[in-house]
């Protein structure tokens, strides 16, 4: 018999190793998240994904992104307690980052925009919420160029100068950032990140001269995928043509 858990009074099957959040998402049950990203290991920092466990090892509030599904687990995603605590968490975040769009979207999705409309503050565009997604992306997929520094109200994400040269320019950090504060932009032959003052050289396709990926990224692929080695320095279009030529002769 397949194993099941109960979410909001309905029974759902789960796969081994699955979290409550993933079971809920798969079945179209909404749970707000901030620090969670499907490409990264769960981190449990923001607590927005709280659910209330009624029956299980430890009844009470748990972060569903970290909570493993277990036979017989009974959880609620919208109990009074969950709504109350989650509402406070969202308000606290908004108090610190007034009108930040990603937070406003979460508030709307949770149907609490009325209770936050009284929160005033400067409109601050694109803030860093310290969710740590970029730090984890860099750790898991890049080279740990960025990390948290300081603590308390000074806590921030930063890149020590000495680590700038390690940056691959893979832009995984930019990709997972929920607010868009992490950004790279293309300039003459380089990509630049203003937040951490990182610059990475762009490579140029030896055939057509188009600039399409960063030098360190190509170097990395070259060393890791030997068979492709010379073709990888070409842009995708020229690479296709080159590989086709090789196949046809």
């Amino acid at each position: 018999m397949a194993k099941t858990i109960s979410i909001d009074m309905r029974e759902f099957e789960f796969d081994a190793g699955e979290t409550v959040l993933s079971v809920a998402k798969r079945n179209g049950i909404f749970i707000p998240t901030l620090c969670y990203h499907e490409a990264l290991k769960p981190y449990g920092a923001c607590r927005l994904c709280l659910v209330e466990v009624l029956e299980g090892d430890k009844p009470g509030l748990h972060a569903s992104c970290l909570l493993s599904a277990k036979q017989g687990l009974v959880v609620l995603t919208v109990s009074d307690l969950v709504l109350k605590v989650r509402g406070v968490l969202i308000q606290l975040l908004l108090k610190r980052y007034p009108k930040e769009k990603s937070l406003m979207d979460i508030a709307k999705a949770c149907g609490i925009e009325d209770s936050i409309s009284t929160l005033t503050g400067e409109h601050q565009e694109k803030a860093c919420l310290l969710c740590g997604r970029c730090v984890r992306a860099c750790e898991e997929m890049g080279r740990s160029v960025i990390g948290f520094v300081s603590r308390g109200s000074e806590r921030a994400v930063d890149a020590p100068i000495g680590s700038h040269k390690e940056c691959l320019g893979c832009r995984a950090c930019e990709n997972v950032c929920p607010t868009g504060v992490v950004r790279f932009s293309l300039h003459d032959g380089v990509i630049k990140n203003d937040l951490w003052d990182i610059t990475v050289d762009m490579a140029v396709c030896p055939i057509c001269g188009r600039s399409f990926a960063t030098v360190p990224l190509i170097d990395k692929v070259k060393t890791e995928l030997e068979a492709l080695s010379e073709a990888i320095s070409m842009c995708p279009a020229c690479r296709r043509a080159e590989l086709l030529k090789r196949i046809c002769v």
């Binding site: 750790e139 740990s144 160029v145 990390g147 948290f148 520094v149 300081s150 020590p160 390690e166």
Partner: peptide, 12 residues
């Protein structure tokens, strides 16, 4: 360890 983590400890 990555430099970013050492800096994290040093500033913590």
């Amino acid at each position: 360890l990555p430099l970013s983590q050492i800096k994290g400890v040093a500033t913590f």
